[in-house]
Amino acid sequence: LETFPLDVLVNTAAEDLPRGVDPSRKENYLSDEDFKAVFGMTRSAFANLPLWKQQNLKKEKGLF
């Protein structure tokens, strides 16, 4: 999966995202380093959170 810089994904409308980016899964296009910096946890820890908590975190970080 291709990764993009944080500033390309945060608070970006679906139509302005790079081609192929799923707007409902912007976090998947962050590098592992950016993911950890944004969410303060690994991808696996994030995946283990309840869906509502994942969505709330994504909203807080501008990735929803």
Score class of each variant (00 low, 15 high):
L1H: 14
L1N: 14
L1A: 13
L1F: 15
L1K: 12
L1S: 13
L1I: 14
L1V: 12
E2G: 13
E2D: 12
E2K: 12
E2N: 10
E2F: 09
E2M: 14
T3W: 13
T3Q: 09
T3D: 04
T3R: 10
T3V: 13
T3A: 08
T3S: 10
F4H: 08
F4N: 03
F4L: 09
F4E: 03
P5N: 05
P5V: 02
P5S: 06
P5L: 04
P5A: 06
P5M: 04
L6W: 08
L6K: 05
L6G: 03
L6Q: 03
L6A: 06
L6M: 09
L6V: 09
L6I: 12
D7M: 08
D7K: 08
D7C: 13
D7H: 14
D7R: 08
V8M: 15
V8K: 09
V8L: 14
V8Y: 15
V8S: 08
L9S: 02
L9C: 05
L9R: 02
L9E: 02
L9M: 04
L9K: 02
L9V: 02
L9G: 02
L9A: 03
L9N: 02
L9Y: 02
V10R: 13
V10I: 14
V10C: 09
V10Y: 05
N11Q: 11
N11W: 05
N11I: 06
N11H: 12
N11C: 13
T12A: 11
T12D: 07
T12P: 05
T12W: 09
T12F: 08
A13K: 14
A13F: 07
A13I: 10
A13D: 11
A13Y: 06
A13C: 13
A13L: 12
A13G: 09
A13Q: 11
A14G: 09
A14K: 11
A14T: 13
A14C: 14
A14D: 15
E15Q: 14
E15R: 12
E15G: 11
E15T: 09
E15W: 01
D16P: 07
D16S: 08
D16C: 15
D16W: 07
D16L: 12
D16V: 06
L17M: 07
L17P: 03
L17G: 04
L17R: 02
L17Y: 06
L17C: 06
P18T: 04
P18W: 01
P18L: 04
P18S: 05
R19C: 15
R19G: 11
R19W: 08
R19N: 14
R19T: 15
R19I: 14
R19H: 15
G20P: 05
G20N: 11
G20R: 07
G20L: 07
G20C: 10
G20V: 08
G20A: 09
G20K: 06
V21L: 08
V21H: 03
V21F: 07
V21K: 03
V21D: 02
D22T: 04
D22P: 03
D22F: 03
D22H: 05
D22Y: 02
P23M: 06
P23A: 10
P23L: 08
P23G: 07
P23F: 04
P23H: 07
P23V: 09
P23T: 07
S24M: 15
S24W: 10
S24H: 13
S24F: 12
R25H: 15
R25I: 06
R25C: 12
R25W: 08
R25P: 02
K26Y: 05
K26D: 03
K26Q: 05
K26C: 06
E27C: 04
E27I: 05
E27T: 03
N28W: 10
N28Q: 15
Y29S: 07
Y29L: 04
Y29A: 05
Y29E: 03
Y29R: 02
Y29K: 02
Y29P: 01
Y29Q: 02
L30Q: 01
L30K: 01
L30Y: 01
L30R: 01
L30A: 01
L30P: 01
L30M: 06
L30G: 01
S31V: 03
S31A: 07
S31R: 06
S31M: 04
S31F: 02
S31E: 04
D32E: 11
D32G: 05
D32N: 08
D32Y: 05
D32Q: 06
E33A: 11
E33G: 09
E33L: 10
E33C: 08
E33N: 09
E33T: 10
D34K: 01
D34Q: 07
D34V: 09
D34L: 05
D34Y: 02
D34M: 06
F35M: 01
F35D: 00
F35W: 03
F35G: 00
K36L: 15
K36I: 15
K36V: 14
K36F: 15
K36G: 09
K36H: 15
A37M: 13
A37Q: 13
A37I: 13
A37R: 12
A37S: 13
A37C: 10
A37L: 14
A37P: 00
V38C: 11
V38P: 00
V38N: 02
V38I: 09
V38K: 01
V38T: 10
F39T: 01
F39L: 07
F39G: 00
F39R: 00
F39E: 00
F39Q: 00
G40N: 14
G40K: 10
G40Q: 11
G40V: 04
M41P: 00
M41W: 01
M41Q: 03
M41V: 05
M41I: 08
M41H: 01
T42S: 14
T42R: 04
T42K: 06
T42P: 08
T42N: 12
T42M: 08
T42E: 14
T42V: 07
T42W: 04
T42D: 15
T42C: 08
R43F: 06
R43P: 06
R43I: 05
R43N: 02
R43W: 05
R43K: 13
R43V: 03
R43Y: 07
S44Q: 14
S44W: 12
S44P: 08
S44M: 13
S44C: 13
S44V: 13
S44G: 12
S44D: 14
A45G: 07
A45M: 13
A45I: 10
A45S: 11
A45P: 00
A45H: 11
F46V: 00
F46R: 00
F46C: 00
F46D: 00
F46E: 00
F46M: 01
A47T: 11
A47P: 00
A47C: 09
A47L: 12
A47W: 09
A47K: 13
A47E: 14
A47Y: 13
N48S: 15
N48W: 07
N48R: 11
N48Q: 11
L49H: 01
L49Q: 05
L49I: 05
L49A: 01
L49C: 03
P50M: 01
P50H: 03
P50Q: 03
P50R: 01
P50V: 02
P50K: 02
P50Y: 01
L51A: 09
L51C: 14
L51R: 12
L51Q: 11
L51Y: 13
L51N: 09
L51H: 13
W52E: 14
W52N: 08
W52I: 12
W52F: 10
W52A: 09
W52C: 13
W52R: 07
W52M: 09
W52T: 09
K53L: 15
K53P: 00
K53S: 10
K53G: 06
Q54V: 02
Q54F: 00
Q54S: 02
Q54N: 00
Q54W: 00
Q55G: 07
Q55R: 11
Q55H: 11
Q55M: 13
Q55P: 00
Q55V: 14
Q55E: 15
Q55N: 14
N56P: 00
N56M: 14
N56Q: 14
N56T: 11
N56E: 15
L57K: 05
L57G: 00
L57R: 01
L57D: 01
L57Y: 05
L57F: 04
L57M: 13
L57C: 05
L57S: 02
L57I: 10
K58L: 09
K58S: 03
K58C: 06
K58R: 07
K58D: 00
K58W: 04
K59H: 09
K59D: 07
K59Q: 10
K59W: 11
K59Y: 09
K59S: 08
K59C: 13
E60K: 09
E60D: 11
E60G: 06
E60T: 07
E60S: 10
E60A: 11
E60C: 09
E60Y: 06
E60W: 07
K61F: 07
K61M: 08
K61N: 11
K61V: 14
K61A: 14
K61I: 06
K61H: 10
K61L: 10
G62M: 04
G62C: 09
G62Q: 04
G62P: 01
G62Y: 05
G62I: 01
G62K: 05
G62D: 05
G62E: 04
G62A: 02
L63F: 10
L63S: 02
L63R: 03
L63I: 08
L63V: 04
L63P: 03
L63G: 04
F64A: 15
F64Q: 15
F64H: 15
F64K: 07
F64W: 14
F64L: 15
F64I: 14
F64P: 06
F64Y: 15
